[in-house]
Simulated assay, not measured.
Amino acid sequence: MPVPRIRQLVIAAKTLETADQLGELLGLGESFVDPGVAEFGLENRVYAIGDQFLEVVVPVKDDAPAQRFLTRYGEGAYMAIFQTGNLKSLRARVDSLGIRRVWNIDLPDISASHLHPADIGGGIVSVDEPRPSGSWRWGGPDWRERSVPGRLVSLAIETPDPLSLAGRWALALGLIVDGPTLYVEDGALIFRKGAVERLAAFGIQVDNRDAVLARARELGLDVDGFEIRFAGVGLSLVG
């Protein structure tokens, strides 16, 4: 079965000013507004970085799941979207494991399933199969023209029991357990010790790391080495 890859990472925020600030911080291009997220009581902005995506979602309804997340945790990493080449097999596997699929869609150009965060652990996980494989509906029709150089290289997940949660994700995504780190196509999932289960940090390869760090300081953000604390998420910059 094809190894999944990180395709899109999502931050839940209180206002769209957070999306504007993310774009300014990382030097991103114009964002895409996806009207489809209204189904989840959200509005959003999606930025293309290479052939991957950073999204900021903002709840516009009090009963939106993202609003419950913000009430409980504050702004932070909300969702990870993986690309797979065989969603049919993955759906069958998670069903056999008792991992609930809370949302499914099958369109001509993409199929997707959201896995229940209480079952997968750590946050909302979506697994999507675009057709053709290089396309990405959620990025907008012109995402290639708006994309800036860079790459999403890792996702860090905090949990009281890193090995146990890594094993659960490995079973769901069809990966090999290699201690507290799972390797996806051209990236890594890093499970580290934390008080609660949560998506904690995004590893991002950028061409202009020093410039990004300088902008972070100008914006008054906390900077620790090459990691910027932004909207409850650690943005770990790789040069």
Rank of each mutant, 00 (worst) to 15 (best):
R198Y: 04
V212T: 04
N104G: 13
D95Y: 05
F226S: 14
V102H: 06
E55W: 00
A38H: 13
A12H: 03
S135V: 06
G98Y: 11
D109E: 13
A172R: 01
S236A: 15
Q205A: 12
I105R: 12
R144Q: 15
D210P: 02
S96D: 15
S89F: 05
L213M: 11
P160E: 10
A66Q: 09
G234P: 05
R146D: 14
L97C: 12
I190N: 11
D210T: 05
F230N: 03
R100K: 14
E145T: 06
Q21K: 13
L199C: 09
V3Q: 13
W169V: 09
E185K: 11
R192E: 14
L175I: 11
A48I: 05
K14V: 12
V10M: 14
E55M: 09
G187H: 04
G179S: 10
I110D: 08
E55S: 04
R100T: 06
L152K: 00
T159R: 00
F53S: 03
D222E: 15
L235M: 01
L219D: 11
E129L: 04
S31W: 08
S31H: 11
G50R: 07
R5A: 12
N44E: 13
E158S: 14
S113Q: 11
G187Q: 05
V33Q: 15
P162N: 10
S135L: 05
G41V: 04
W136V: 00
